[in-house]
């Protein structure tokens, strides 16, 4: 598996280059901020009609990680849908696709600020999920320990010999991991941003996604 390993409160985790988080001991795969149906929501609200392929692309990549890891549990860490309307508007083909991915495994939809209510797709719908030392939730709480969250879409930038390389990134320290967004139509929030700075400990690291995930001191 193409991952960068670290541990959080004793749980050995692997940050995958795709932006997913893999917990081998529990055979648990976690992805955050899929934002399925984003283009549908935008056009519904009078915005531009973006290419309506992001759901397909996100599911394709999700399927690839699931096939590679064969997880027993999949946790979608909130903002899985761009809003509840977008979840309702998913095409039949996409629904069947999600059903196929869910077959034979536990599937948890954590609620996010974009998708606070249950959706009529398989799987359970939770505000948070606790397994062993870890808590899976959408938005980080400053006082939490052993927390896996998403929401902020962190990205990190690195200047190397005159070139700036900026990519979605995991932010990790001894108390938490903040996951990058997995959805195709998602942007990033720079790790230097105040809110991320406040949440993360001084010795925090960023793991940049990409072909080979790379750990570096969290850019501040």
């Amino acid at each position: 598996m193409n991952g960068c390993e670290f541990s959080l409160q004793g749980a050995r985790l692997s940050a995958l280059g795709s932006g997913a988080l893999w917990w081998p001991e529990e055979a648990l795969l976690c992805v955050s901020d899929l934002h399925l149906g984003k283009s549908e929501r935008m056009v519904r609200r009078g915005g531009a009609a973006l290419p309506p392929y992001e759901t397909r692309d996100t599911l394709e990549r999700l399927e690839a990680v699931i096939n590679a890891c064969q997880p027993a549990t999949v946790v979608c860490l909130g903002d899985s849908f761009d809003d509840l309307g977008a979840a309702l508007a998913l095409g039949q083909e996409d629904r069947l696709w999600i059903n196929r991915l869910q077959a034979g495994r536990r599937w948890v939809w954590i609620e996010g600020n974009h998708d606070p209510g249950p959706v009529d797709l398989g799987g359970s719908h939770l505000a948070a999920l606790h397994i062993g030392p870890l808590a899976f939730t959408h938005i980080a709480q400053a006082t939490a320990v052993g927390e896996v969250s998403g929401h902020y879409h962190p990205k990190a930038a690195l200047h190397a010999r005159g070139r700036t390389i900026s990519r979605p990134a995991f932010l990790i320290d001894t108390a938490r991991v903040i996951m990058p967004a997995f959805g195709t139509y998602t942007g990033g929030l720079r790790s230097e941003t105040d809110v991320l700075n406040r949440l993360m400990q001084p010795a925090a690291q960023a793991i940049m996604t990409g072909k080979t995930p790379v750990a570096l001191p969290m850019p501040r």
């Binding site: 050995r12 010795a203 690291q205 940049m208 080979t212 570096l216």
Partner: peptide, 28 residues
Amino acid sequence: AEEKLLADEAARLMETSGLAQITPAPSH
């Protein structure tokens, strides 16, 4: 080339910052 550049620079930063010593398992 870019992947290599990235890996080199990240390794250098980890080394300089002292974080390399505490990787990969800070919470241990």
